[in-house]
Design a protein around this nucleic acid. Structure first.
Lengths: 356, 356
DNA sequence: TGTCTTATCGTTAACGTTACCGAACATTGT
DNA sequence: ACAATGTTCGGTAACGTTAACGATAAGACA
């Protein structure tokens, strides 16, 4: 009934050829949808392929084909204050390492998110060299869209990560759904406090004009909480600085007037807020919710100062993008749409198991 | 500076041979640590390999070698009341599908977790056939240990998933850390209620004597909460039934006496509790925490009856196990230890993004 | 009819690695 | 001295697929 020890010879291109009474060359032409095959034999071969559920040997294919796939990755560079992009880069590097033995060459270009010129420079480099695909984390909307259009003309596959922009890439977008992450933060908040609670939303980022997308998170957060009808008092404060001292000053002056029960930091800069309440133990600590699995954030999570980190796996985004390109070019799969990224909740009791 | 369009020929076995002035046969002998090479040439070749950081082409290797890897998977079969094992099976099937084109044959054996005899049967089958490895989800401790010892004698690699047992497998254990999942549940509980809260722990399972491991979860849960010194009242109830009607009866009689603020279900059977509070809207619903991303559980999560699902990714366990074996046999990697499985928190606002 | 094109198909050399078969030479035993 | 055995190595077929190159035959055009 079972235990078929006979080395099950894989059903391959040769077997198809034998059954169809043609050469393997013809079978290959059918398999790869190339011309120079009559409709009659094409159908015959296709039928046999379907009947026997032929699965190509990916090893053999990748060995045979000259893998000159070159991928360009364009993302912002990590700054001291925002470790976020380092996570993203980590995932990309992991992907590069995995794909390298399979003949895929990847080059990473970092640009300064405070300097459009650097972005234009690296995008020009990508266009000039002959890459097959480019992974982009967009910051400068207009310039990115112009760049992507150029890529399309050069038959260069494009794929966005981290944030989506109107002009569509050829392969799609891999990244978080911002409104949902805001709603999730609202959901957690609803478990933390009762009616009439005071809630403070903090936007901490230098050059806030480039971070319009944060509004989407806030909107998700607010609508979720407002729908609860619990008469929350919600305030929003913008802090357009990166250095701790500046943030500290802003917080001190504001928290006097408005002592929140819950503090929601809309991005990964929650660690500076953590440091604030660590340094100012005289002030009653609210519940704190923030984003992303950065070392500094996890530090204050483990200290019990930050309560929840919502994480959209920035590392997975880059990794998935590369993995998708691998499947697109080598395995010739045609995944139509990406599954949305999971949104993870990290607390003091499960952070040590995160990132696998 | 960049854009090296010259097709970077991979540095391969031929190049080594040329540099060392030997044949590729000799290089192969060195690479695979086979005999019939003099110490002098062996060293010479090894040096060249190291100097040039030679990376074998995995595709070529797997094409050349006869991939007769056969894997046996032994897990409990899904019953109507416990969809848990279906998740596990789903992950395994995904792994099988991915590994199949690489020449790895996998056979799944399901046994009845209420009948030792069925386990003995499938384990016997595995021993009789010539598998290279076996993935086991243990339920019957003693019988599993005897089986694993037999496997070791037959040079059969073993690997546990889902629950660990004393007699070690050759390759380790992939599965949840039970104490930590209990602590995490306690952590969430601590955010939900204040001092003096009443907490009910529910063990729901037929044949509870086979589920000693649930105690570990409970211990983690209790110690976390007791350390908070909030004077919680914690009660534990065992319900050794699977059918809803029985559970309903037990719940009705108990909840009269002890109306909990939080209800912690120690396994994946939380959906029956969800149904209970759905059917009995006259009873005030406590916060409900349970386990696993089963369809029924998610259903009551989306209805707002179940508040938190803690999920240990049962599907990933099987998938990881197969993936590990692939790397062990084909890529000849020797991963020493598994990373622990992540523990995920699922709420009404992020369940739709789960499982990627 | 002869030449030229086109459509269709077979043949074959790669791709990088593995493992088997012997060749060449050295060593041992008688 | 000769055969038998052992050591070290080169040569090569095979793994399944791809794609370039030819071969053949049929039709088009003069």
């Amino acid at each position: 009934m079972m235990s078929d020890d006979k080395e099950k010879k894989r059903f391959g291109i040769k077997d198809i050829a034998k059954l169809a009474d043609v050469s393997i060359g013809t079978v290959d032409r059918v398999l790869n949808n190339r011309k120079d095959v009559s409709e009659a034999t094409r159908k015959k071969v296709k039928d046999i392929i379907k009947e026997n559920n032929y699965q190509p040997n990916l090893y053999a294919r990748s060995l045979s084909v000259k893998n000159n796939i070159k991928i360009s990755v364009i993302i912002p560079k990590t700054s001291l204050q925002t470790g976020y992009w380092q996570l993203c880069l980590d995932g990309i590097n992991k992907g590069i390492q995995e794909l390298e033995p399979f003949g895929i060459q990847t080059e990473v270009f970092l640009y300064d998110q405070e300097d459009v010129h650097t972005f234009l420079e690296v995008s020009e480099k990508t266009i000039k060299s002959n890459f097959n695909a480019v992974v982009i984390a967009p910051i400068f909307i207009k310039e990115t869209e112009a760049f992507v259009k150029k890529c399309h003309r050069k038959k260069l596959q494009t794929i966005y990560i981290n944030s989506d922009i109107p002009t569509k890439s050829t392969l799609g977008y891999i990244g978080p759904n911002l409104n949902s992450t805001g709603r999730l933060a609202g959901n957690l908040t609803s478990y933390l406090v009762g009616t009439n609670a005071k809630i403070l939303i903090l936007n901490i980022a230098k050059g806030l004009e480039n971070y319009k997308y944060l509004d989407t998170k806030i909107e998700g957060y607010r609508t979720y909480l407002n729908d609860l009808d619990r008469n929350f008092r919600i305030e929003v404060i913008d802090i357009p600085y990166n250095e701790y001292e500046e943030v500290e000053k802003e917080l001190l002056s504001n928290i006097e007037k408005f002592t929140p029960d819950v503090l929601f930091v809309t991005n990964s800069r929650v660690s500076v807020v953590g440091r604030f309440f660590h340094d100012h133990q005289e002030i009653k600590k609210p519940y704190i919710i923030g984003f992303d699995f950065l070392e500094a954030n996890v530090d204050y999570l483990s200290k019990g100062i930050v309560d929840f980190l919502i994480c959209q796996r920035p590392d997975k985004q880059g990794y998935f993008a590369l993995n998708y390109l691998y499947r697109f070019f080598l395995l010739k799969e045609n995944v139509t749409n990406f599954k949305p990224m999971p949104i993870d909740i990290i607390t003091i009791e499960n952070y040590m198991f995160y990132e696998n």
